[in-house]
Every structure is written in structure tokens, then in C-alpha cells.
């Protein structure tokens, strides 16, 4: 199986280049991460992030044949050869497939991603009906891999100001939580031309999310809440 891998080491390379690899012992049930590990065994200078290997830690987001995804959840037999692997777009490359995610994390922290309760808390759990809890499904599962945000053209144009789909999805995770009491603060924070309203429903985020989440829908839900807040 043929691979074209993006390589760049700032200490030795003037500019990035694509390197070809051929792997023979590829079995039908192998994932891209397995192939990257085989390449790493051949050439230990090859650098990429990975950890759990089952799509829950969110370390190994890469661009595969032009589409963002997790290496550990991408089955090799379903990919077109040569498999072209690049770092996720629009982020500064540190080395090979490793990018600097600070901008992404900054936006995540900025939406105040924590439950805010103003009333005194009960001595037992808050009561929450299964229906109220169901509203968090499709939101809380986010693994912060960054596939969505780095696939979003609105984020490419305004990476410093647009919060991006991942952070906005998380914002709605708290807005949708029956226990959270900071709705108006959260909505206020997202108002203005950039933070949320750069979203033009391009829906790249939905296409690439390895967990099957829908940030665009979450953003629409936030807008609905804002309209409700306004009237």
C-alpha cells in the first residue's frame, strides 16, 4: 500500500515536502494509525500524536486524502491510494503531522466550558429528567480533536476571532444543560460579528466529525436561544 506523508522538521528542512512510503504487510482490518506506527518503526524521526487508538482521546486528528479525520478510526481498505496524510489545515505545523493547537484550546477556554450554578447546591444530586439529559447527547461526547474547527473555512479566515465549531458546540452543551444558570452571560459572550456569527452553515464540521456530532445544528440552536432572549 502506498502512502504520501507530509514531512517537515524545522531544524533540518527549509520547507515541507511529501515523502513516499510503501507498506507490504497491510491487513484488511488495519487502521491508518497502524500504518503510521509501521512507518514510525521504519523511520523513528517521523512524528505524529496518538494515544488511545480507539477514538476517545482525540490525539491523532490528521488530514487524510484531503479530509480531516482520526487516524485510529480510518480504515485503510476504505481509503484511496496513494493515501495522502497531512497535518490538519490552517494550524501552525510544529513538526511532520504535529500542529500547534493553542488557538483551538484558547477558543475552548474562552467559552467558559464549565457548569455555572448560582443557587446553593443540594446535598444530593440535581434532579434532571431523562428528557432533559437527552438534550446533552450529541454535545458532551466531543473529544476536542479539532477535526471540525480546522476544516471550517470561517475559522481559516478568522482564526483569532471566530470561536470555531468545537468551542461553539461546547458552549451549547452548557446552554442545553438544565443545571446551568449562566444562559444570558453565555449568549452575550457569543454576540458580536465574529465569535459565532462567522458561521455560514458550510457544514464541513458535520462532515468530518469522527464522533458523528453536529456543531452546525448546535450553532443554530444557540441562535434560536438568542432570538428568544431578544424577544
Amino acid at each position: 500500500m502506498r502512502f504520501k506523508i507530509y514531512r517537515y522538521n524545522p531544524e533540518t528542512d527549509k520547507k515541507p515536502y511529501m515523502q513516499d512510503f510503501v507498506l507490504d504487510n497491510i491487513s484488511d482490518d488495519m487502521m491508518l494509525r497502524d500504518a503510521l506506527l509501521l512507518i514510525k518503526a521504519e523511520d523513528e524521526t517521523f512524528t505524529f500524536r496518538h494515544s488511545c487508538g480507539e477514538g476517545v482521546c482525540g490525539s491523532d486528528a490528521v488530514n487524510i486524502n484531503g479530509t480531516n479525520g482520526l487516524a485510529c478510526k480510518s480504515r485503510l481498505s476504505e481509503l484511496k491510494e496513494p493515501i495522502e496524510v497531512r497535518p490538519v489545515p490552517s494550524m501552525p505545523v510544529i513538526r511532520d503531522l504535529v500542529v500547534d493547537m493553542e488557538q483551538f484550546y484558547h477558543h475552548y477556554r474562552a467559552i467558559k466550558p464549565y457548569l455555572t450554578v448560582k443557587d446553593p447546591v443540594p446535598e444530593v444530586e440535581f434532579l434532571q429528567t431523562p428528557q432533559q439529559r437527552e438534550k446533552l447527547d450529541g454535545l458532551y461526547e466531543c473529544i476536542l480533536c479539532g477535526c471540525c474547527t480546522t476544516a471550517c473555512p470561517s475559522f481559516w479566515w478568522n482564526p483569532d476571532k471566530f470561536r470555531g465549531p468545537a468551542a461553539l458546540l461546547q458552549s451549547y452543551r452548557f446552554l442545553a444543560d438544565s443545571r446551568d444558570q449562566a444562559t444570558s452571560e453565555r449568549l452575550q459572550e457569543l454576540d458580536g460579528p465574529y465569535r459565532m456569527f462567522r458561521c455560514h452553515s458550510i457544514m464541513n464540521c458535520v462532515n468530518v466529525c469522527p464522533k458523528g456530532l453536529n456543531p452546525t445544528e448546535a450553532i443554530h440552536s444557540i441562535k434560536k436561544l438568542m432570538v428568544k432572549d431578544l424577544v
Partner: peptide, 9 residues
Amino acid sequence: AQGMRAWLL
């Protein structure tokens, strides 16, 4: 008018 108000308008 920006953000929410612009979007609504």
C-alpha cells in the same frame, strides 16, 4: 448592528 441583531435583520 452586528452579531445577533445583524443576523436577525
